[in-house]
């Protein structure tokens, strides 16, 4: 079971959908942010899993094995994941700073009350 790709993808899809549900429905802005973090984690899990099963080396492999013994495997998925983690950290910092600023100005962080940008 853990030797196949599909179970990882299903878990990732589940994690993504849960995060999406949270992001779409929670009233509290911090909770929305938590949902977004879950979605980012799901994306990361996908990247790592694809790297393990479909890489490394991409087209130069047959069933994941190298055609010849002398190649430098590219850890593209891992590199992507590092970048995504960086972005997630930056997003969390800036997002929470925005939430704090909104809280200072409006004394609320309920997203349905933050609707000044409407008709």
């Amino acid at each position: 079971m853990s030797g196949h790709l599909a179970p990882y993808l299903i878990i990732s899809a589940g994690l993504f959908s849960l995060g999406l549900f949270g992001a779409l429905t929670r009233r509290n802005a911090v909770a929305v942010l938590m949902g977004i973090e879950l979605m980012l984690n799901a994306a990361n899990l996908n990247l790592i899993a694809f790297n393990r099963f479909l890489g490394p080396g991409g087209a130069s492999t047959v069933n994941g094995m190298p055609v010849d013994g002398s190649f430098t495997p590219l850890l593209a998925g891992h590199a992507f994941a590092v970048v995504v983690i960086t972005i997630a950290a930056a997003e969390a910092a800036v997002g929470l700073a925005i939430i704090l600023t909104i809280y200072k100005n409006a004394r609320t962080i309920n997203v349905d009350e933050i609707n000044w940008m409407r008709w």
């Binding site: 790709l5 393990r52 994941g64």
Partner: peptide, 11 residues
């Protein structure tokens, strides 16, 4: 259809 995991760790 997804390929199965190969046995040895590639790296």
């Amino acid at each position: 259809t997804w390929p199965a995991m190969y046995d040895a760790a590639p790296v």
